[in-house]
Simulated scan of single mutants.
Amino acid sequence: MAANGELTPQYYIEHHLTNLSVGEGFWTWHIDSLLFSVGLGALFLWLFHSVAKKATTGVPGKWQCFVEMIVEFVDSSVKESFHGKNALIAPLALTVFVWIFLMNLMDLIPVDWIPHAATLMGIEYMKIVPSTDLNITFSLALGVFVLVIYYSIKVKGIGGFTKELTLQPFNHWAMIPVNLILETVTLVAKPVSLALRLFGNMYAGELIFILIALTYSANLLIGALGITLQLGWAIFHILVITLQAFIFMMLTIVYISMAHEDH
């Protein structure tokens, strides 16, 4: 903010991209990201649990139809991409898809509404889209990575998993160091790509919303144009937030399916 109290574009952008944090260094906690991500996860569980309790074999209501469509869509995606037998995969895929979609959906709330309400309550910063926080996307990706390692060892055994890392792609003892480097990079790249893809797309989308809001708030003469741009970008962004949730879900299924393959 400028010395005379005038709102500057730089301060406006930085303010909207700064998390409400406590702690320092490695132990910094982003309270807003944790609050919204956990809250949306609880909302997902409550909504789907309430539908399951009230489900009927008769004519279903609109909400039950919607939930059944999502479940059938995820179930068909799992059947097409996962070639092993594991009762965890379908519920995991459903959780990943819906949870990430809800976190992404927060991006459609006008950028000034909740931060301004938080300011009125004495809270300086409030970032409401958890998937624009690299800590959240990396934690999701690391959860998938842990499952990949777990099932790789469970299905193939420690020896089989070690051979996979050391005898591929060149099946010769002299190439073990090269194979280990290549396979380790490939393995580590999975969670990194998962986290960065989701974060990058959502962060860029949030930044565009902020820039559009900054433009028409700074110049009332183009306010109508700014609202039109916001609406247009929001409609397009519905596709983006859905696609990013779907990609994360599909890669999760594929990675865990690869972990079940015993060569």
Rank of each mutant, 00 (worst) to 15 (best):
S139H: 07
S33G: 04
K85F: 14
W46R: 08
N19A: 10
K85V: 15
L134S: 05
H116S: 14
M106Y: 01
G84Q: 11
V96E: 02
N19T: 07
P9M: 12
M103Y: 00
I109N: 00
N4E: 13
W63A: 15
D75A: 14
T95R: 04
T56K: 11
F66L: 08
Y12L: 06
V111C: 07
G84L: 12
S131V: 03
V111A: 03
F26V: 11
G39C: 05
T28P: 07
T137M: 05
L17P: 02
N135K: 11
H116K: 13
I89E: 02
A3W: 07
A3E: 13
T132E: 02
S50E: 12
K54C: 10
T56Y: 04
F97Y: 07
H16I: 01
P60N: 07
V71D: 14
A90N: 15
V78S: 07
S21H: 06
F44M: 05
V59W: 05
H116G: 13
V96D: 01
D133V: 02
W63N: 09
A141T: 03
S131Q: 05
M69W: 05
L105C: 03
L40C: 04
I89D: 05
L102W: 00
G5I: 09
T132A: 07
D133R: 01
D32A: 04
L102S: 00
L35W: 00
L45H: 08
V111N: 01
F145N: 06
Y125K: 14
T18W: 03
C65Y: 04
N4A: 07
V71S: 10
L108R: 04
E68M: 13
I136S: 00
Q64H: 13
L92K: 01
E68Y: 06
I13E: 09
K85P: 11
I114C: 01
P91G: 13
P60L: 08
A93G: 07
S77I: 02
L140T: 02
I123L: 15
P110R: 03
L45G: 04
L20I: 07
L105Q: 00
S50Q: 06
W99D: 02
K53Y: 08
F101D: 00
Y11P: 10
T56H: 06
S33V: 00
P115C: 11
T57M: 14
A55E: 13
T56P: 09
V59F: 10
N4C: 14
K62V: 15
L35T: 05
A52N: 15
G61Y: 04
E80W: 12
P110L: 02
N86D: 14
A93F: 01
P9W: 06
F101G: 01
L7P: 06
S33T: 04
A42P: 09
Q64W: 01
E68T: 12
V78I: 09
N86R: 11
